[in-house]
Write a protein that binds this DNA or RNA. Structure first.
Lengths: 230, 230
DNA sequence: CCAAAAGTGTTCTATGTACACCCATGC
DNA sequence: GCATGGGTGTACATAGAACACTTTTGG
C-alpha cells in the first residue's frame, strides 16, 4: 500500500493498536457498565474499559465479540463499532489507537463477570469509579449513543430478556431516556408498531399478573424520522 | 498498556494503519467524490479513496483535515470520522486498518484537485470508476451516512457556498435525498426553523432575481426526532 | 377487603401534506 | 411581451399529547 502508516525512522516508530469494549446492561433498575481493574502499578486502583485480544484471523468486530463472550458468557449480543480514538495526547510516549466497540446484554443475565486476566465488575453509570486515561469520555460517548439510538431504532430490546412485560419495557425506556413516559400512549404506539407479540405466559408478582411479550425479529421497525427540514 | 496489540512473535508481526478520506461536493447538480489514481502496478487503472499521512503530532482527525486541505485547498471544512475498517480479508498478506473520515466541501469551490502524490479527480457518484479493495463499500456507506445526517442535522449547508438561494438549498436536498420536495412547504419550514437569514444581496440570472441567504452559525437547529417509540 | 401493579379510550392540539397562481427580471 | 425561475397561503389529514378509572391478583 502506498499509504505509509508511520514515518519509518522516527522516534514514534510504533503504533499500539487495541480494541476496547463498552458493555452495558440493566440491573436493579440501573444501567450498568462492565469495567476491568487496571493491573499495572501506575494506574493501580483505577478501572478501565475491558480490552479485547486482537485475533489475527478475525475481524475487529469478531475480536470484540469474543471478548464480550469471554467476559459475560454470552454470544450473539448486540455489538457495534463506537469510535476510534487516536489522539497523541492520550498517551504521549507512544501513540495508542483504540478501536472501541459498544455492546448491550440483556438484563438478568449477569453471568460470571470475569474469567479473563484481572478482575472485572459491573458499575452503575451514576456511581463510576476512577477510570484510566480518556475512558470516562469514551463511556459518556457510548451512553449518548445508546440514548440516541434508543429513539430511532429497536435497540431497547437488546437490554431485555427474551420475554418481558410492557411495564418492564417502559421502565427501560424511562431509565435510559431519563424521563417519564405516558403508559397508555406508550402501549398503544408500541403495539400498533407491531414489533412485539404476546406470548402465552404471564409474569406473576405483586398485583395483577402481566402479559409477557417477545420481540418479533421479523418486524421491520420503520424509523419514521421526522426530518429537520422537509 | 496491558492490551497487547499484536501477538508478538507470529506471522502477522505488523499491522498497517492508514487514514482515508471520503470527500463529497456538489458540482453541476451532481454529488461528486474525490478519488486518487492508484500508482502501483497491481492496481493500475483503479482508483482509491485518498490516503492521509499520519502526522505523528496530530490527532487522526487533524491528519485527515490536513489531507483534505492539501487536496482541495480548503481548511475548516466539515469533517467527521466515518468508520474503521480492519477485516483481515481486505488484504490477507498483511492486516490493514483503515480509519476513514468523511468530509464535505462547498459547491463551486473545486480548487486544484491534487498536489499530493499521484493524480486525483472528481467523479460523480453515479459514474464511479473501478475502485480498489473495499473502497466502493466504504463510499456507499459514506453516502448512506450523508443522506441520513441530512435528515436530522444541518449538514446540508456544508455543501453550499456561504450565500445561497432557497432554490439552491432545495435542489441540494432533492439531489441527495433523491426525491422532489414541495417548494412552499420547504421554504416555510426552513424559514420558521430560523437557521438561515436573508443577506442584502440577490442572485441574478434567468428570471426573477433570487434572495440570497446565509446559514446562521448561532442557530441551534433542534432535532425534533420523532421517536420510534414514545 | 386492601394494596399493588396491569390494563384500557377519547379529546384536543400541532404538525405535515397537497395544491395553483402572480411576480420580477433579461432578452 | 414572453420566457424563466422566484415567491406566496390555505384547507385537510395525520400524529402526538394529555388525561383517570377499572381490573386482577396476593396477602
Amino acid at each position: 500500500m502506498e499509504a505509509l502508516n508511520l514515518p519509518k525512522d522516527q522516534s514514534l516508530a510504533r503504533i499500539d493498536l487495541e480494541i476496547r469494549v463498552v458493555v452495558f446492561t440493566l440491573h436493579g433498575s440501573q444501567l450498568q457498565v462492565l469495567l476491568s481493574e487496571a493491573e499495572d502499578s501506575q494506574t493501580e486502583g483505577r478501572w478501565s474499559l475491558p480490552a479485547a485480544q486482537i485475533n489475527p484471523h478475525s475481524s475487529l468486530e469478531t475480536s470484540a465479540a469474543e471478548c464480550v463472550e469471554m467476559l459475560t458468557g454470552l454470544s450473539e449480543v448486540y455489538l457495534e463499532q463506537l469510535y476510534t480514538y487516536g489522539d497523541p495526547s492520550r498517551r504521549p510516549e507512544q501513540r495508542l489507537i483504540s478501536v472501541v466497540y459498544f455492546a448491550l446484554i440483556p438484563a438478568f443475565s449477569l453471568a460470571h463477570p470475569g474469567c479473563g486476566s484481572g478482575k472485572t465488575a459491573w458499575f452503575s453509570i451514576d456511581a463510576l469509579p476512577k477510570l484510566v486515561m480518556d475512558h470516562v469520555e469514551i463511556l459518556k460517548y457510548a451512553l449518548r449513543r445508546l440514548r440516541y439510538k434508543l429513539e430511532y431504532t429497536a435497540i431497547g430490546f437488546e437490554l431485555l430478556p427474551e420475554a418481558f412485560t410492557l411495564s418492564e419495557l417502559q421502565h427501560t425506556y424511562e431509565l435510559i431516556l431519563g424521563e417519564k413516559l405516558d403508559k397508555r400512549n406508550f402501549r398503544r404506539r408500541i403495539l400498533e408498531a407491531g414489533i412485539i407479540e404476546a406470548t402465552d405466559a404471564r409474569r406473576m408478582g405483586e398485583g395483577r399478573p402481566a402479559q409477557l411479550y417477545r420481540y418479533r425479529a421479523d418486524a421491520v421497525a420503520e424509523v419514521k424520522a421526522r426530518r429537520l427540514f422537509p
